[in-house]
Design a protein around this nucleic acid. Structure first.
Lengths: 306, 306
DNA sequence: CACACTTACGATATTCGTAAGGATT
DNA sequence: AATCCTTACGAATATCGTAAGTGTG
């Protein structure tokens, strides 16, 4: 037998109205159609739900059991439908995203804030971790997608370029390099360097860019804020991508675009290839693409990405 | 929107089969009809439940939420229908009945035993109490109906005669009355009486029958078994209805029908007038009427009830 | 080209509302 | 007589299955 929410509503309406005519109105049906509906339900169940006399309509003793179950079942069905719609329309939900620490601290918060304004009912979760960690979180389904610099296996992951992130020299005011017009990679070779850890994507790009030149490493730390402090104190210079510059500008350091063709890291949106993103996740994904990190106008007047 | 158990079954079939053709077979539908059904459900919900590519069918992330709810809701609906049917067909249920102590000890147990054989899934509850208590239990909805000697208010209760219960003299062997051929009420006047409590229906019938004659009361007790013991010990005689005779015959006493027109108590089936009995209660009610207490062939050869 | 889902379409069932019928107060 | 549920019946609607269409591996 096929019992639907419509049927349950009809039964409950009749229980409450104790009158076919009024219950029919509540169900937007003519009274005979409503009568037939109740009859059909009763036939499907195999026994009467209501005891009718011309002047009175009331539940049978078995009908009374049915009523309480029916109310619960109808509430469950309605809640189920509402919940589905809420998720589909992004009134409810949850998005988990992984992002490189530089993005998580600089550009992403504004995007998340806008997302939250648009979809206040959706819970957000952010993992700020290095690229390998980001990819692992995507693989392990801990996050819906990641903002990372390394694109993983193409069979497992679907990647899309978010932006290209050019590299900048950072040095203290008064440093010899601060006066150089166009800084080239080989200009840096003689100066002591403060580095990020080898596991960071920034460092890996740098190593590749300098090869086969050597760098004079004085210190190696985990966090960009530490790098900024060390450079500020005159321990060395550093080279970092554009999206991290807010750290150094806040610290009152000189930042200068590096004249180095091909020295740029690419930031990708990375997600699992199988399945699709939830409505909530897709909306954040799309918003990220809309609010691309705006490249600053470089001294040379070129834009990094079209 | 109208979401039915049929719809839920279709969704669940498709989740499990991940294939429209096989899921359609499970639902006894042609594949296009099944496809249309899923489409209709999705339109009603306002978003896709399934992601289809020609070679693969899988739930959307929102659909995954829906699935688990749908399984629960479907199980609830099915359980609700099954439960209703079980109650309507007397595979489940509960009957509470009140009965006079004489009936509860003598005739009723065999009826209950037969009922239980027929409907082993139905719980039984029996209150053995005096007539007023029986009526009160009916009024308070503690029992479905009662077997009592007093019919209550006709507006509140519906009553039906179960049987008429004739009165018998009970005396010890060798007692002068044991030899009398046809015992009349006035023959008893001179003998000491053992009585039931004034609140019992038996006593009330007796008082009416003897009026205006006086009875020589020696003792007054609550239980028939006590009366039997006292009569056996020679303290007096007693008069009791036929349905209690098993007590006295077991005790080896003489029982003789009383020649007294109109001296009989009527046993009624008493139930509330409003509402109807549950299927389980109605079955016991009907069985009681089928298994009427069989009147014994009296010496005079007359039957008390037709 | 084979498989799987969708669309098209005519046939069948179901459901609907109006009007008449019947029962109860 | 008034009220309320049921039955009757033609019309509108929904659902079904067959057959053709479309897209993907």
């Amino acid at each position: 037998m096929n019992l639907g929410s419509r049927d349950l509503r009809a039964v409950i309406a009749l229980v409450e109205e104790r009158n076919f005519t009024r219950a029919a109105q509540r169900c937007h049906l003519s009274q005979p159609a409503f009568s037939a509906l109740i009859r059909t339900i009763e036939e499907g169940l195999g026994a009467r739900l209501f005891e009718r006399s011309t002047r009175n309509v009331e539940l049978t003793p078995e009908g009374r059991l049915f009523e309480s179950s029916a109310r619960r079942a109808l509430a469950d069905l309605d809640a189920m439908v509402d919940d589905f719609r809420d998720h589909a329309t992004r009134r409810k939900g949850r998005v988990a995203v992984a992002a490189l620490p530089s993005l998580a601290a600089g550009w992403l918060p504004a995007v998340l804030a806008e997302y939250r304004r648009r979809y206040p009912g959706i819970e957000l979760e952010l993992f700020d971790t290095l690229s390998d960690g980001c990819i692992a979180l995507v693989r392990g389904k801990r996050v819906d997608f990641a903002l990372a610099s390394a694109a993983g296996d193409d069979a497992e992951f679907s990647t899309e370029v978010l932006c290209s992130d050019g590299f900048y020299l950072v040095c203290p005011h008064g440093h010899p390099l601060a006066a150089v017009d166009k800084v080239r990679v080989k200009d840096l070779q003689r100066h002591p360097f403060v580095h990020l850890a080898r596991s960071s994507s920034v460092r890996q790009h740098l190593e590749a860019a300098f090869h086969p030149l050597r760098m004079r490493t004085v210190l190696e730390v985990e966090h960009l804020a530490s790098v900024a402090g060390l450079v500020k104190a005159g321990l060395g210079i550093t080279v970092v991508p554009e999206l991290t510059l807010f750290h150094f500008e806040r610290a009152g350091l000189v930042v200068k675009p590096l004249q180095a063709r091909g020295l740029a890291r690419t930031i990708y949106l990375v997600r699992r290839r199988s399945g699709r993103l939830s409505a909530a996740a897709q909306a954040l994904y799309d918003l990220a693409l809309e609010r691309l990190p705006a490249p600053r106008r470089r001294r040379a007047g070129r834009r990094l990405i079209g």
